[in-house]
Design a protein around this nucleic acid. Structure first.
Lengths: 137, 137
DNA sequence: CAAAAAATGTAGCATGAGCTACGGTTAATG
DNA sequence: CATTAACCGTAGCTCATGCTACATTTTTTG
């Protein structure tokens, strides 16, 4: 007889959850950019953006909709909820700071673009502030 | 009327593989540190280090052994293969540079330690070189 | 406006990383 | 030296992210 599965006690320190949060940041950021560039964001736009199948995208969109970051209806474009738009704004600003910072450090644009996309998720408030100070000097 | 959104010139690598590689970096680095500090590295040392169950550790150790980065026998300490030792050296040096760099930027030690552990995995050769130049000036 | 093309959705599978429960080994110690 | 404690392995579950194959809906077009 199997026992009942107990509830998780510490949900957010673990790698799996951290990665899921990074995915949320990436998707919300991409949705905001694609809407800004082309007026609307389709599932396939995201699939091409992340170089991933549309299936992967639509499952993640569903989860982010459950988290009230995105909104979409079947066969319709993906939109940002107000919560998602605020989240996207923060993420995009942080990304812009990291990118500008790396270039100011002397990293070429191409490398800076690649590295900033990985680094941005791990830049805490203190580090972000330090990068801003550096950019202003 | 919407325009096509083209895929990024340097697309995201597949997230799952990226994460697996980060895990390899983290584990190899931790094994090297633990051996240096206490003479040997047990599965439970790693479990405590990453705040994870021993089951998770032993599965990952098994995979890294298949990749010839680690070596272990049942109920025995985990060791680095020659390949793993070289890998660990590179990873630890990069980590040290990132940590020193953040502190030199003015980030407090505690924040720098936390952020450097996330950032290190995404610091490419060009960015690493730029950080080293900064540290020397 | 019907047929073809494009876009999405669903089913079902793989792998990585997390867990608990349980059992087997090794090391400590009374 | 027999127990106990610590350590480790295996079974079997969840969830997140990948996929292909196939079904459905929307859009384009002949």
């Amino acid at each position: 007889m199997k026992e009942k599965v107990k509830a998780r006690s510490v949900p957010f320190s673990k790698t799996r959850n951290r990665h899921a949060n990074e995915t949320a940041e990436d998707y919300v950021e991409a949705v905001a950019e694609i809407i800004e560039e082309s007026g609307e964001c389709r599932v396939l736009d995201l699939a091409r953006h992340f170089n991933v199948s549309h299936v992967t995208v639509s499952r993640i969109v569903k989860r982010l909709q459950d988290q009230q970051l995105l909104y979409s209806q079947p066969y319709r474009p993906v939109e940002l909820t107000p919560k998602g738009a605020k989240f996207a704004k923060r993420v995009r600003e942080r990304h812009a700071v990291v990118l500008a910072f790396l270039m100011a450090l002397g990293v070429d644009k191409s490398s800076a673009q690649i590295d900033s996309e990985g680094i941005e998720h791990h830049v805490g408030p203190k580090t972000l502030a330090a990068m801003k100070r550096f950019l202003e000097s």
